[in-house]
Design a protein around this nucleic acid. Structure first.
Length: 301
DNA sequence: AAGAGGGCCAACCGCAGATGG
DNA sequence: GCCATCTGCGGTTGGCCCTCT
């Protein structure tokens, strides 16, 4: 494919936006919406900018309710845990943090969290228990990729969503007590799954009953997610692995779908002796156990 | 005081998926 | 089914600003 034709190099201004340009763009979008065609927008309002540039400026800066800087500890944790789960899917991570943009989160990760973990890794290395962090990070970040890679067409498949904190009862995702409840109910977990790239096949009615209730507007879907909090029950008395493999209520197609877990990948998630593992534990995670519990629970639904 | 170095962030680039003709 | 175009995303870069020496 390649770059959109809107990005012709000729006669397009680059670099920082002036207040005048911001004002023009903001005024237009507030009045008309983005009209679904960013490329056609700049000429309409007399901006010598690429449509993509306008879109980016709006999304990352001019959009209402955008927060900049000052990431809270809770946001920090959410970012870390989601990164561990799904890797550098910044847009998805951003969707869990209202007011934050993927760019912001990406910058935050690259400039702070990464170093934070690197620092930690160095300490661990000095104490003789660390592995190569870069590899660990890659490995961890690629967990989603590797575990769901479709061998035949090499396409990316859905990623595992974050697992709730393993408390005995109704553990929410780490979030600030002052924040809105974000991800609530099994339904929203499913939605998150779908959002994470999950496209359950049409006959995966396990999901579809919920999916059909989703609003079409992606932004309202996000809002819907935010307005809820997660509730995942504590682990059942039966073995999670049993539940994973043997639950007779599970639609066979679902069991065989891309959402099943193989043990090799679970070991990857386990992240033995690496920084993320300790990070997880610090946050109260036992990856394998949690993943098992979570998938078991999801399949029983 | 000034130069060097590093941190941080806004913006750009290029790719891939989605969509429509 | 193919092609052109648009949109969205993640990686990278350029430049400003702050801190250190």
């Amino acid at each position: 494919m390649g770059s959109a034709p809107c990005c012709e190099k000729t006669n397009v201004k680059k670099g920082p936006w002036s207040p005048e340009e911001d004002a023009k763009l903001k005024a237009y979008i507030e009045m008309h919406g983005n009209a679904g065609n960013w490329i056609a927008l700049p000429p309409k309002i007399g901006l010598k900018r690429c449509g993509k540039s306008c879109r980016l400026r709006w999304l990352n800066y001019l959009r209402p309710n955008i927060k900049h800087g000052g990431f809270s500890e809770e946001e920090d944790k959410i970012i870390r845990s989601l990164y561990i789960s799904i890797g550098s899917r910044w847009s998805i991570i951003a969707a869990q943090l209202p007011g934050r943009t993927d760019n912001d989160i990406k910058n935050y990760w690259n400039t702070r969290l990464k170093k934070k973990l690197l620092g930690k890794q160095c300490k661990e290395k000095q104490s003789g228990r660390g592995n190569n962090l870069e590899q660990d990070m890659k490995r961890s970040a690629n967990v989603g990729d590797s575990m769901v890679q479709d061998d035949h067409n090499n396409k990316k498949s859905p990623y595992w969503p974050e697992l709730p904190v393993p408390e005995a009862t109704a553990p929410p995702l780490p979030h600030s007590s002052t924040q809105d409840h974000r991800i609530d109910s099994q339904a929203s977990v499913r939605r998150l799954l779908i959002k994470l790239g999950g496209r359950f096949s049409d006959d995966d009615h396990v999901i579809n009953d919920e999916e059909t209730t989703l609003p079409n507007d992606p932004s309202s879907t996000d809002q819907h997610l935010y307005e809820q909090t997660i509730y995942i029950p504590s682990s059942s008395s039966s073995s999670p692995m049993d539940a994973l493999n043997l639950n007779n209520n599970i639609d066979a197609k679902f069991v065989n779908s891309q959402y099943t877990i193989d043990e090799a990948n679970l070991h990857m998630l386990q992240g033995k002796n690496n920084t993320f593992s300790s990070e997880l534990q610090e946050m109260g995670y036992n990856s394998t156990q949690r993943l098992m519990e979570w998938s078991s629970y999801m399949m029983k639904k």
